[in-house]
Design a binder for these strands. Structure first.
Lengths: 205, 205
DNA sequence: TGTACATCAGTGAACGCGCGTTCACTGATGTAC
DNA sequence: TGTACATCAGTGAACGCGCGTTCACTGATGTAC
């Protein structure tokens, strides 16, 4: 608990965290600046000391999310080296782990309608994060004979799509779409089958 | 153009259509009953002659979406018969085609937070729609040796996840995520590789 | 160590707005005779 | 075909509410001397 009293001491970050909880709970359009302020124990007007307004607060939440996300993905990638396959699989797991551990950030990043190009800083960190997935895919696709190798961008788009789909449909309390399988298993097996289709893992594994 | 004058003539459906346009444009939480009424050329209060309120209107939009979706999926399934593979691939294409042709419906169905179990009728039509995908997956998985056959529910969850992911990330104007590939190609190749991984299409195709 | 003062992070009241919902109403439509 | 009347789909005013944002302000903090 930071300093108490008239001056909050750490209001900026407290607002971001309140926003994240609300975005997680109410969705990106349901989030309100006033409620975030209230949660941080402060008047709505105080928000304007730290942010330009509602949008700016969401953008900062997304930025912090991409920062964490990029770190996790990079760490996962490193942990699998020097094996391209191990690196790739680790990044896939990291994707889902991030979405589950930081659902508010995830929503702010991918569902809030905030443009990734809103600021140069946001664009940079977003590209760092998504770049790791593409790098892992590129590494791995070197093991595929060139004539049957799909473009690395397509490869990583497939994996991104499946990961995002699993998150949205099965890893959240989506309405009536309770998965009969744990999302982790679903993604792991899905990626496994996909990689087998590329000839990257032995067919009898 | 329906009858003009004091009585609208077809207000119920006009409201659903206005709602769909707004849901598509502003997202599920951004949709307002008042604006839908205005678009239909009517006072907000008039909505209550036809619906129980905001939620009920969204639910009806979702219901109509599932109806169309189920029809499309069933038609696609039939068009591929008697080949299990052709049926399966056709349903995959139908999924994306639906999402692109009826984006408002798609959002109302899968992103509005409306529970699929809101009414018995909604649950029924939703299950009819999603059941087609599962049926296509079950048919197809009969061609896999039982010992390496994943459960059909998992199979169809993978495909659903990838389809949904492609829709959300690449088939809509998502922020900064312009795909370098047409979504249709992305889904087609993704599913192709996945099926190859299951040994369902020849590895050199 | 003490004082004067600038800086700064908050308050609280006010704004105009659009929301979902209710209510008594009224004008148009359709039916019985 | 004409009239009386019931039904019904709309109006328009009103409600209480929470929103994002602005503004002049004030109390706390930190710095210069």
């Amino acid at each position: 608990m930071p300093k108490r009293g008239y001056h909050h001491g750490n209001l900026r970050q407290a607002l971001v965290e309140a926003a994240l909880e609300l975005i997680e709970k109410r969705g990106p359009t349901g989030f309100t600046l006033s409620e975030a302020a209230k949660r941080a124990g402060v008047t709505p007007a105080a928000v304007y000391r730290h942010f330009d307004g509602r949008e700016d607060l969401i953008a900062e939440a997304a930025r912090q999310g991409f920062e964490i996300f990029a770190d996790l993905m990079e760490h996962a990638y490193q942990s699998g080296q020097p094996s391209a396959l191990a690196s790739f699989e680790a990044t896939g797991r990291a994707y889902l782990a991030f979405a589950r551990k930081y659902p508010g950030h995830y929503v702010a990043m991918f569902e809030s309608g905030i443009s990734i190009n809103r600021t140069a800083e946001l664009a940079m960190v977003a590209n760092r994060a998504l770049g790791v997935l593409e790098k892992a895919a590129t590494d791995l696709s070197r093991h595929i004979p060139p004539d049957k190798r799909p473009p690395a961008a397509m490869f990583s788009a497939h994996i991104w799509a499946m990961s995002h789909g699993v998150v949205e449909l099965f890893a959240r309390g989506a309405p009536g779409t309770k998965s009969p399988f744990p999302p982790e298993d679903l993604l792991e097996t899905g990626i496994g089958i996909y990689l087998r289709g590329l000839g990257l893992v032995p067919p009898d594994e």
